[in-house]
């Protein structure tokens, strides 16, 4: 499977075009901001998005797990969009999940969207430390290297008179932000104040996600 090699905190990570990140040395797969059930949550407000996002996101995860067979799957927050989201997870999905949980630890870092929700078999954490790395939804004050989500980063690229906005992986020296793994999720420009307050403006490593490839800027 194609990947882009990313060096962060003196470790090698693989960034996949499906917006997941793989830490090969520890056989750990990392995803963020799946926002499962966003459609059903919008339906509450009578905005009827196609109700297929949950199925597609879970399938994307299952395909990755089949290929990589990781020991750990770390979700750095916002697995679910809100309390209603579980309504969109079908019995068959639960069965599949428990099958995968036999070989993989599902580590669920809680995000702002899914703080108080439980799903059987998931191990819940507010943040999770492995060696010198801290997995957390929103970065905190720490001397550790942090891998997080929350911001759904996108990068604006102007080249030869054209401008495009692309989902991306982005990090500075200490903080790594994953793109959203969701289907109906939008994004935020990495130069917006929300993101630059966290990452700063300079010395960013940016990896836009293309159709079948992750690029490096």
């Amino acid at each position: 499977m194609y990947y882009q090699l990313i060096n962060f905190g003196n470790e090698e990570f693989h960034a996949y075009p499906n917006k997941s990140l793989y830490w090969k040395r520890l056989n750990t797969l990392i995803v963020s901001d799946l926002h499962i059930g966003k459609s059903i949550s919008y339906a509450k407000n009578k905005q009827f998005l196609p109700p297929y996002d949950t199925k597609e996101i879970l399938n994307k995860i299952f395909v990755s797990l089949d290929k990589i067979k990781p020991c750990n799957l770390i979700i750095v927050g916002d697995l679910l969009h809100d309390v209603f989201s579980t309504l969109s997870i079908k019995d068959q999905d639960y069965k599949n999940l428990s099958q995968y949980m036999k070989n993989t630890d599902f580590i669920w870092i809680k995000g702002n969207h899914d703080k108080n929700i439980q799903i059987e078999g998931f191990k819940n954490f507010t943040n999770y430390k492995i060696e010198k790395f801290l997995f957390t939804h929103i970065p905190i004050e720490t001397s550790l290297f942090q891998i997080c989500g929350h911001y759904h980063p996108k990068v604006k690229i102007s080249h030869r008179g054209k401008t495009i906005l692309k989902t991306c992986f982005v990090h500075n020296e200490k903080i790594f932000i994953l793109p959203s793994f969701g289907i109906l999720t939008g994004g935020l420009d990495i130069h917006s104040t929300q993101i630059s307050d966290v990452l700063g403006k300079n010395n960013l490593s940016i990896y836009p996600v293309g159709q079948d490839k992750v690029y490096k800027l």
Partner: peptide, 13 residues
């Protein structure tokens, strides 16, 4: 076009 821009930019870099 998107892919082209990305690729071109990467090549340049």
């Amino acid at each position: 076009t998107d892919e082209y821009i990305l690729e071109d930019l990467e090549n340049e870099i």
